[in-house]
Amino acid sequence: MDQHDRAGRPDSAEGPAERVTGGLAVADRQPPRWRRRISTTLDLIRANPTGRITLKIFIAIAGAIVVTVGVALIPLPGPGWLLVIAGLGIWAVEFHWARRLLTFTRRHVHNWTQWVTRQSLLVRVVLGAVGLIFVAVVLWLSLKYSLGIDVVARIMRYLATH
């Protein structure tokens, strides 16, 4: 007996919720309910010229705040880059250039992650050490030139006295 999905297409080996395209299984499901609600709400807001302008202004300001906080946190250990990307995601709701930049960023982060995971343990340790040294230098320079605190000089003085 031949199995078919609701659209009359044959079911693939992966099951009725997936189809094979170009040798890759692609999910054939709808976006989550919360995403459909947000999309519908945004479409209703955009239907009104005043709502469209208000939405653009709100998205621009909200995205700018998140990106600004993220950029301020980049030199510090923590979620600086994550906030910058989140701010881009906010802007991408309303601005095409942000959507393209977010797609570009996601693609390159994914490619970088895939490349790193294929490397040997030694290469990954070296990359991690270089990353930690970079963060330490940026943190040291930020403290030295923005707050006037020279951590290295203080440590050297402490070591000389003890």
Rank of each mutant, 00 (worst) to 15 (best):
W81F: 07
Q30W: 09
L88T: 02
A129H: 11
A136S: 10
D2K: 10
I59N: 02
L127D: 07
T41V: 14
P49Y: 11
H96S: 13
M1D: 13
H96L: 15
T21L: 12
I149C: 06
R33C: 03
S120H: 00
R29G: 01
Q3D: 14
I90F: 13
I85T: 02
R46K: 07
G51H: 03
H110V: 04
K144Q: 01
R37M: 09
S146M: 15
G131V: 09
V126F: 09
A25K: 14
A86L: 13
G15P: 10
G63M: 02
Q114R: 13
P79W: 02
D5H: 06
R52M: 04
R100I: 13
A17V: 11
G89I: 03
I53S: 05
V93G: 03
F95V: 02
S12M: 07
R35Q: 13
V137R: 06
I53R: 06
I61C: 00
V125D: 09
Y145S: 00
K56C: 13
G78K: 02
I155W: 10
G87A: 01
R6L: 13
L147V: 02
F104K: 01
D2N: 08
R46W: 11
Q3Y: 12
A72H: 10
R46L: 10
G63H: 01
P16E: 13
L102A: 07
D28Y: 00
R107C: 03
V126P: 08
G23F: 12
I149P: 02
G70S: 04
V130Q: 06
P31M: 07
T40L: 15
F134M: 09
P10H: 11
V138P: 00
G78H: 05
V69T: 01
R36N: 06
E18H: 08
G22Y: 14
R33A: 12
V126R: 08
A64Q: 07
I74V: 06
A25D: 14
V123F: 14
G63C: 03
L76I: 10
A160M: 04
R154I: 12
L24H: 11
V152P: 04
V123R: 09
L82C: 03
R46C: 04
Q30V: 06
T117W: 14
A86H: 05
F134N: 04
W140C: 08
R99S: 04
V126M: 09
K144E: 04
V84L: 05
S146G: 13
T54M: 14
